[in-house]
Amino acid sequence: MMKNSTYLSICIPAFGRLEYIINTLASIYKDAEDQTIPLADFEVIVSDNDPDKELEKLKELFPYQNFKYFNTDCEGFMNSFYALTYAEGSFLKLHNSQEIFKKGSLRVLLSLVKEYMKDKNALFFSGGLLKKGKTFTAGSFDEFIQKTSYLSSWSNAFGIWKEDFDAVKDRIDLNKLFPHTSLLFTQNNKRKYIVNDSSLFSTQFVSKRGGHNKFQAFTIEFPSILDMAVIDGDITALTKRNVIRQLMNEFLPSLFFNVKIAKRETYDDEGFKENLKRHFPKGAYYKIVLLSLFAPANIIWRKIRIKFLK
């Protein structure tokens, strides 16, 4: 396959969870078959940073000409960056290993890539989580962050044109927890930002997820990226405050419920209360704890709403 002969690279960073990745890959290839999409139009890349190489057997399970497996020597979320480096398509989309392709999703992705190949407008796939259920646009990076809020940090929504990636990959400092977000914030001068909020994927539930301090990620690391964007003039202070408010009112209560109350996830929360003092308003911790009591209803409603999105 010649370089850049494909439209879309689906880049999957992975560590273990073989059964989930098998389901995800199977959904991609089934969708391609059902929609009669040529394999030459896309490629699928798995970047495995597990030294034990358990996922290497995927090469035998998916013996397609457009499937590529790499064992990568890197730690944690930096694998998201390395997964992109192996790609040869015109547009590089990060994809979480537990996200199943719904029927017709691959065609939607390819259609948008083909539509915007000339102008190279930014493409973002929010999966119905923004409550729109359709494609909409933003005319500036600040407006894009206003409209996507903390979801701008979701790796599964992220994509970048290969020529843009190649232009910045060797000259930016990557946040080790949010390397893809570091890349996203380099794309601050696009003429237009295209956000597809249709429900393209369904999530495989992974019990007892954990392995890092997710509370610190969203109280220190991600807000610090926003801070730098304000300093650089890429977003306004008002936009940052709105994102912080939504983190406090929506995301962090749900995280607190899953980890501390329901114990469905095992993320480390060390320093959470103290860390909130850096970017969040006074009393944020107690508000988050209170709002976490309503998290189950909000989670159920979100799943129902996404299920009925087209």
Rank of each mutant, 00 (worst) to 15 (best):
I306V: 15
C74W: 01
M78D: 05
A237R: 07
V206G: 06
K134H: 09
R305V: 12
N189S: 14
K53Y: 07
I160L: 01
C11R: 02
P13M: 12
T148I: 11
R17N: 11
P13Y: 05
Q246F: 11
F218M: 02
Q98E: 11
A217Q: 03
I235Y: 02
L184G: 01
L84I: 08
T135P: 05
G210F: 09
D50P: 00
N298M: 07
L177T: 06
L183H: 02
E250T: 14
T181D: 03
S202Q: 13
L238N: 12
Q204S: 11
E60A: 12
N79S: 14
I194R: 01
E60T: 12
L39Q: 12
K131L: 09
I10W: 01
N242S: 14
A14H: 05
N188Y: 15
G139V: 11
Y267W: 09
I225A: 05
G283R: 04
D142A: 00
K102I: 08
S90G: 06
V113P: 00
P223S: 06
F81S: 02
N242R: 14
F136P: 09
T148D: 07
D31L: 06
L309V: 12
S149F: 06
A295Y: 02
R171I: 09
A217M: 03
G139K: 15
G211V: 06
A83D: 04
H180D: 15
L183N: 03
Y69W: 09
I10R: 07
V243S: 01
V113L: 04
I231E: 08
I288T: 09
I261D: 07
E43V: 00
G233E: 08
K59S: 14
T266S: 13
M117T: 15
T219E: 03
D142H: 03
T181I: 08
I100Q: 11
S80V: 14
L226R: 01
S198I: 05
K303M: 10
E88H: 12
I235D: 00
Q98I: 09
T266Y: 08
R302K: 15
L129A: 15
G159E: 01
L58N: 04
L183E: 00
D48L: 06
L109V: 04
E265T: 08
Q204Y: 04
L255A: 01
F77W: 12
D164P: 04
A40I: 10
A297Y: 07
K273E: 15
F280G: 01
T148Y: 03
Y20N: 14
D41S: 13
K273R: 15
E115N: 10
V206W: 01
I231Y: 12
D232H: 11
L183K: 02
K147W: 00
K240M: 12
G233S: 06
K114N: 03
T148R: 05
D227N: 13
I220E: 10
I37Q: 02
K307A: 15
Y150G: 04
Y64K: 09
S152Y: 00
L130G: 04
N189F: 14
F136W: 13
N298P: 01
F101S: 02
F201P: 03
